[in-house]
């Protein structure tokens, strides 16, 4: 984990050095990593979009960190966002609350993601930054652009195990949410 002082800074939230966004040579190892990351992301958004919320926590490690916040909050160094979890158990609690406790109209999402920009880290950790758009489809048929933003992910790519998110920061471009945010992003 980064030092607590900088854990919410824009620099860390980006997780990537901007100069690495420039075109670069790709090795065979990078190709494999890229495919693994893309596959994880594709399965992640599919679980959310297909209402398999019970599978959602399994995309994370036990002691994961999941934060939904806004670009503005991060830019100002402010730590609080809309959803915050520090374990897979907290994610499971959220799913159970959405299923059994919270009252909201039936709705679905359709996530669209751009190819991730990936940077290898240490200890099998890969950093990936991925742009997304989420369209929300209400039970009435009303369909709207709900949120856009980026995932700033730290992913554990361990050959012995399934790739999982160690840390996922969902950085929303806008601070404004239509009515409510029930299903995770």
């Amino acid at each position: 984990m980064p030092k607590s002082g900088d854990r919410f800074s824009e620099k860390h939230a980006l997780g990537l050095d901007p100069k690495n966004h420039a075109p670069t040579k790709i090795s065979a190892m990078d190709v494999e990593t890229t495919f693994k990351v893309q596959d994880l992301l594709a399965r992640y958004i599919q679980a959310l979009d297909h209402d398999r919320l019970e599978d959602w926590p399994d995309f994370f490690t036990d002691s994961c960190r999941y934060l939904v916040t806004t670009a503005d909050n991060l830019a100002q160094g402010m730590p609080i966002g809309m959803i915050y979890a520090t374990s897979r158990a907290m994610l499971r609690d959220r799913v159970r609350s959405l299923r059994d406790a919270n009252v909201y109209e039936a709705q679905r999402y359709r996530h669209m993601i751009a190819p991730p920009v990936i940077e290898r880290g240490e200890g099998g950790i890969v950093r990936a930054q991925t742009s997304f758009m989420v369209v929300r489809i209400m039970h009435t048929g009303e369909t709207m652009m709900f949120v856009t933003g980026r995932y700033d992910d730290r992913i554990l790519l361990d050959d012995a195990d399934t790739p999982r998110f160690v840390e996922k920061t969902v950085v929303l471009d806008s601070r404004q949410i239509d009515t409510l945010l029930a299903i995770p992003i």
Binding site: T70, N73, Q76, M82, R175
Partner: peptide, 10 residues
């Protein structure tokens, strides 16, 4: 101040 956001209510 620790954070902020808004909701558009219909």
């Amino acid at each position: 101040v620790l954070g902020g956001y808004s909701q558009m209510l219909a």
